[in-house]
Amino acid sequence: MRLEPIPNPSAARRLGLPALALVATLGVAMALALIAGANPLAVLGQIAKGALGSKLAILETLNRATPLIFTGLAVAVAFRAKLWNIGAEAQLYAGAIVAVLLGTGALGSPLVLPVSALAAMLAGAALLLGPVLLKTRLGVDEVVTTLLLNFIMLLFVSYLLEGPLKDPMGMGWPKSPALIPEARLPRIVDGLRLHWGFALAIIAAVVVWVIQTRTTLGFEIRAVGQNPEAARFAGMPVNTVLVKTALLSGGLAALAGWSEVAGLKGHLSSDLSPGFGYTGIIVAMLALLHPLGVILTAIFVAGIFVGSDAMSRAAGVPTYIADMLLATALLFMVLAILLTRVRVVRG
């Protein structure tokens, strides 16, 4: 068995294989349900119902998708330049901390929301600046530095919540004081539990898409990602492009934390993110790093999480099935991407 490259894969191959990957994922999900002793079709049905079955479910899914769109975009932007930012989780918390610092009375309306959003982006960008400078100046692997920063950040958040940012009225719970109402993101439609963070995420995706396709920076990011040697030869400032990419990526990831605090939770706690930063990688990969695709895959991934919660209550199958599902989806998708470029031949 050998791999033979396909120089110009057909559209059917490029779109059909990812679709097939999703179908295969559902197959694995049904097998898992069967092992757990439940009716496979019923489990899938309950996941779908839990994610999309009612207005409430849909809004919950979209709320859950919001931080995933931001982290997915952060990852998609960085990976496009082959900058392996695994630290969206840490950048998310940087944004969340800023939301608390500026949103608990330091600033008043109407400045607080735009200022704290910008400051959050700066904080996230600054957090990725260190790893990218270490990479461009000293050749330090950014996978390691960004990954380890996640743990440092989580411990730093714990310290803040036990110390300087601890809510004096929190009955001893490690959480920050609540944001003032002016610092909260309003709901898009009165009475519906969906905040403006979701709309911002959609806008961010469109902005990233425009940057990638219409601007010189986007052209540079794609060139550096595809072939840094040719980019350098052509006179592109490769290191500067990587730094700019990192700033954009870190800023986007920070908006995830900022919008979770300002839009949904209203305070910071150390369980703010159940791994949105890491799940962002899956979201971005499933979207084949396309910024608009990130919107769809984030909603898909959020739907699986929300739907699995509901299914678990009804069918008694553990919610871990959601993690298994996403892991298999990612593996199948990576395989599908590979198989669009090569075919397996005998001999």
Binding site: R214, T215, T216, A223, Q226, A230, A231
Partner: peptide, 27 residues
């Protein structure tokens, strides 16, 4: 000399995209 998955247009402007084929930040 080239970026394999870029099209001919993108490869043609690889060296002069800033000086000749953009206005401010826009391609």
């Amino acid at each position: 000399g080239s970026i394999a998955d870029f099209d001919l247009t993108e490869n043609a402007v690889l060296e002069a995209y800033r000086s000749r084929f953009s206005r401010r930040a826009w391609m």
